[in-house]
Amino acid sequence: MNAARQNRFNTVAAHGALILYTLIALFPVFVIVINSFKTRKAIFREPLALPNADSFSLIGYETVLKQGDFFLYFQNSMIVTVGSLFLILLFGAMAAFALAEYRFKGNLVMGLYLALGIMIPIRIGTVAILEMMVQTGLVNTLWALILVYTAQGLPLAVFILSEFMRQVSDDLKNAGRIDGLSEYRIFFRLVLPLVRPAMATVAVFNMIPIWNDLWFPLILAPAEEVKTLTLGSQVFIGQFVTDWNAVLSALSLAILPVMALYVIFSRQLIRGITSGAVK
């Protein structure tokens, strides 16, 4: 067989397979979003048709915005995600710096201790976490969630960040020391700016699981004022199961912020994964 022809055949087959899988991946999202803009009748009569002048309707969105407190949920999710990411990055970078920079007794043990949490899921300890949050009065506060997600994110953050911090040149730090900078200044002024790309990777890795988590909001913060968007949409959809317009609109609204984050950060995310951060 002609090599060139076989090559072209391979290319077509490759694109065929990828397009097929891309369709499988996007189809459900597409169906949900287009149907959220249709009247109830049109949703059932022609589920795969795009909304047109006849079938266009925003009734579902009206119900959602009237009945559910989605702005509050969104705000809660934002606070929890940003707060946890901030603490993961700050505490994680500090610990990573200590482990990467200084030789002291127990360095290796401390590193292994912090790495334990990479493999063991924090959910196993839920019973005792809830008990502790009840005792400290943190139950039904956003702090409970922020603390749990910080603890959950720290092991991997320390692991990745310390790998990167070992690569920061010693000359630079020693120059800083000769100039009389304190260790804290060396960390905040010299090292942190240099590992910014690694921090972004850690942030992106942690962001999506925190934003999407259902387990801990359900158990630690189910009250109305502290519901996250994920839990809020779960509860809302459960109540409006038969109101298809409302359910589809709620789903679309829940997809929206994640998609926006993804579009902003996808390059960082993919670079993070493919840069071998998780070897």
Binding site: W211, I237, I255
Partner: peptide
């Protein structure tokens, strides 16, 4: 994309 969506969705 599906990986970034929440289980609820």
């Amino acid at each position: 994309i599906p990986t970034i969506l929440s289980f609820v969705i």
